[in-house]
Design a protein around this nucleic acid. Structure first.
Length: 721
DNA sequence: TTAGGGTTAG
């Protein structure tokens, strides 16, 4: 039989009911005690899989139970210590009902019996039952109070934990180091720095300010709320430090963005264990330093360290970002060999790995092989489908998720965005709201991005209002999405307003703003902001930023500056200029009349120049009336038009913009002869959150007849005036 | 009775 919350081997002592005797309770022999303890330790350290394997080799589960029964019989059927051990052993294996049965049967219980059951219920999320026993517990000492407080914290009920801490103090029981550790953890999880630090005077009063566990939890509290200096001060003041202190301090440097220093600490740590190793690998992996994560993993393997499941899940994550399918398969082999493929962290990251490497079917096979899937497995598979363009499969699976969380919704929203089905983005977003799930930073950044793609200012403004209500408008992801949305919708002032108030900006934030300014024609501001970025931030210019800068230089007439930026792209920033960048330079030179230079520049391009480069030159030829170059350029454009479908339309447009109307007519004539049709233009307008499309050739809009009627009416009224 | 580490969305 399986327990309610995880797989278990079943109750340990299925014994017949014995008549308990209260008198004559000799102490349990040490050998028995040790044997029971080792059983318990085994259950604890390795989980039931390990226990089951060991049992297969040595003795059957039933025999072990018989052995325990035998021991109990030897001691007149009842021994308090043995019973307590049995309760703990059952708790460790998740057989809570058997633990309770044993407890209820006991003729006499001590504080250990009570605490074992109370903490046992807490451990498996059965909070109400835990409290029921706690309230009836005659031994409400510091240990059982602490068991309840830490139990609340484990179950995410942090306010309850604090409340019980207050009640404990009111009842006159003094906290110990473990109580303080649990209470500080509750404050950390609540993100309440003030509350956490308000416990400090009591810690000093009771004399635990030098305790390693208490200091460790205080360091973590400070790091979580960004009080890095205070965390460092606590660390410096500690006389004794353990492996947990050192692991926590790794986080401090990661928080400061100094992974190099974190690695130095890791290398110099006086003591390392599998947790500190997995912490370092995870930090590399989470910060996008996949190669380092992989290297460290290999190194600790070479050093003979046995990686745990955390190491595996982090290294698989690193491999999926590197698209390391082959290495991933090797790791998968190790995982199977070690029998840890059932770990949900490992299997979820493996699904992600296969999908990120384009092996969606392999990901699905793995997904189907998992018996007890959690929501992360589902989300990983949904995400896998959508990133491989299988958005319908993603939606189908999404609909089957038994208990969706906000990541499930965000995955689906992001999936539609990635697959450019913007109307679906809003549809799922609305479904999400209706389901009662609260959107978060991730949701808003995706939905705002959809608004930016549609240049849908009304929807974007509406979402901005929601974002303000949640107080997340200057978050790096949301702020960037808002900056981009306003810029793409043409509201550059609002875009600048958000950008200027963002406390932290990354490469994408700067790109959105610089590109936004350039595309909205604010050339000088583009260049000023680019200079500011170089002076004040550590962000390196990327291809998009430099394209925007070139575009701005071209529009400002800053030819030499533009050429200087163009030349520095490869030399200084290591970015190979693309066709767009080359065309931009051609445009720049042509606009300023340096036509021969522009023509030479086109010829020097490392790839086949596209129509836009020649078009820019032709436009310049028209402005500066250079017939010779114009003729050559027009011929080349004609050849290009023949090669490409739709080339004539482009050519005709180019001639039109260059004012060469005879050539326009000739091109159109040529198109007619070849039986080509000009594609129709269209425009759209957004009314009450709905985008209405208008086609220039056919009246596709359902209400076009009514619209024309109203137009006629307006016309006649205007004429009457 | 406790503190440090892991997977999926942006």
């Amino acid at each position: 039989m399986r327990g309610p919350t995880r797989s278990h081997a079943g109750p340990i002592a299925r014994r017949e009911k014995m008549a308990p005797t209260k008198e004559a309770m000799p102490a349990l022999p040490i050998s028995v005690s040790v044997r029971l303890r080792s059983w318990r330790m085994m259950a604890r350290s390795g989980g039931m899989e390990k226990v089951e394997k060991k049992q297969e080799k040595r003795e059957s589960h039933a025999r072990k139970s018989d052995e325990v029964d035998q021991i109990l019989k030897e001691f007149n059927g009842f021994n308090l210590v043995a019973h307590n051990f049995l309760i703990s052993a059952n708790v460790d294996c998740g057989s809570l009902d058997e633990a309770r049965r044993l407890f209820d049967e006991m003729p006499e219980r001590n504080e250990v019996s009570w605490t074992a059951l109370i903490s046992g219920f807490m451990k498996y999320g059965r909070v109400k039952e835990s409290i029921w026993y706690f309230q009836r517990n005659p031994f409400q000492n510091v240990i059982s109070w602490t068991a309840v407080i830490s139990g609340f914290v484990q179950n995410g009920l942090n306010f309850e934990a604090i409340k019980h801490f207050q009640r404990m103090l009111e009842s006159g029981v003094m906290p110990n180091n473990i109580t303080f550790t649990s209470v500080i953890r509750a404050c950390t999880d609540l993100g309440d720095f003030g509350l956490g630090m308000s416990v400090l005077p009591l810690i000093v009063k009771v004399g635990f300010e030098d305790n390693v566990s208490v200091s460790n939890s205080l360091i973590t509290l400070n790091l979580r709320v960004g009080e890095i200096e205070l965390a460092r001060r606590i660390f410096n003041q500690m006389e004794k430090r353990d492996v947990i202190t050192w692991t926590a301090i790794l986080d401090m440097y990661v928080e400061m963005g100094d992974l190099g220093e974190a690695r130095r600490i890791f290398d110099e740590m006086p003591e390392r264990n599998e947790v500190s190793c997995s912490a370092m690998i995870a930090r590399y992996s989470q910060s996008g330093n996949a190669e380092e994560a992989l290297e460290l993993f290999c190194q600790i393997m070479q050093d003979g360290f046995k990686p745990n499941t955390s190491c595996f899940s982090s290294v698989i994550k690193a491999l999926s970002s590197l698209k390391g399918l082959q290495a991933g398969k090797i790791i998968h082999g190790h995982v199977v060999k070690l029998g840890i493929e059932r770990d949900l962290y490992v299997s979820s990251s493996l699904i992600d790995l296969y999908c990120k490497c384009g092996k969606t079917e392999d990901g699905r096979l793995l997904f189907d092989s998992i018996w007890e899937k959690n929501v992360v497995c589902w989300n990983s598979m949904v995400s896998g489908y959508s990133l491989n363009g299988l958005i319908e499969e993603a939606r189908e699976l999404f609909d089957q998720i038994p208990k969706k969380n906000n990541v499930s919704w965000n995955t689906m929203v992001a999936g539609y965005l990635e697959n450019e089905q913007f109307d679906k983005v809003f549809e799922v977003f609305n479904e999400m709201l209706l389901s009662g799930e609260t959107p978060n930073k991730s949701t808003f950044s995706s939905v705002l991005c959809a608004c930016a793609s549609l240049a849908s200012l009304e929807k974007g403004k509406n979402l901005h209002g929601k974002v303000i209500k949640l107080g997340i408008q200057y978050d790096i992801f949301v702020g960037t999405a808002l900056t981009d949305m306003y810029a793409k919708s043409g509201d550059i002032e609002s875009s600048k307003w958000i950008f200027n108030r963002m406390p932290k900006k990354n490469e994408i934030t700067w790109t959105a703003m610089i590109q936004g300014l350039a595309e909205n024609g604010f050339a000088e501001e583009t260049l000023t902001l680019f200079d500011e970025m170089r002076r004040t931030s550590s962000v390196a210019p990327n291809e998009l930023i430099l394209s925007a800068v070139l575009f701005a230089c071209s529009h400002c007439g800053l030819i030499d500056k533009g050429l200087w930026y163009f030349n520095s792209m490869e030399k200084v920033y290591g970015i190979s200029p693309n066709e767009r960048n080359y065309s931009c330079v051609v445009d720049m030179l042509s606009r300023s009349g340096r036509l021969s230079e522009a023509e030479e520049f086109i010829k020097s391009m490392p790839f086949q120049p596209d129509a836009s480069a020649w078009a820019a030159l032709l436009s310049g030829c028209n402005t500066y009336a250079d017939e010779r170059i114009a003729e050559r350029t027009a011929k080349t454009l004609c050849k290009l038009a023949e090669k490409k479908s739709g080339g004539y339309v482009l050519l005709s447009n180019i001639y039109a913009s260059a004012g060469r109307w005879i050539d326009v007519l000739n091109t159109r004539k040529l198109m007619k002869e070849k039986g080509l049709k000009k594609s129709s233009g269209c425009s759209w307008v957004e009314v009450r959150n709905q985008v209405h499309l208008f086609n220039s050739q056919d009246g596709t809009h359902s209400q076009s007849a009514e619209m024309y009627e109203i137009l006629e009416l307006l016309k006649s009224e205007m004429l009457a005036l």
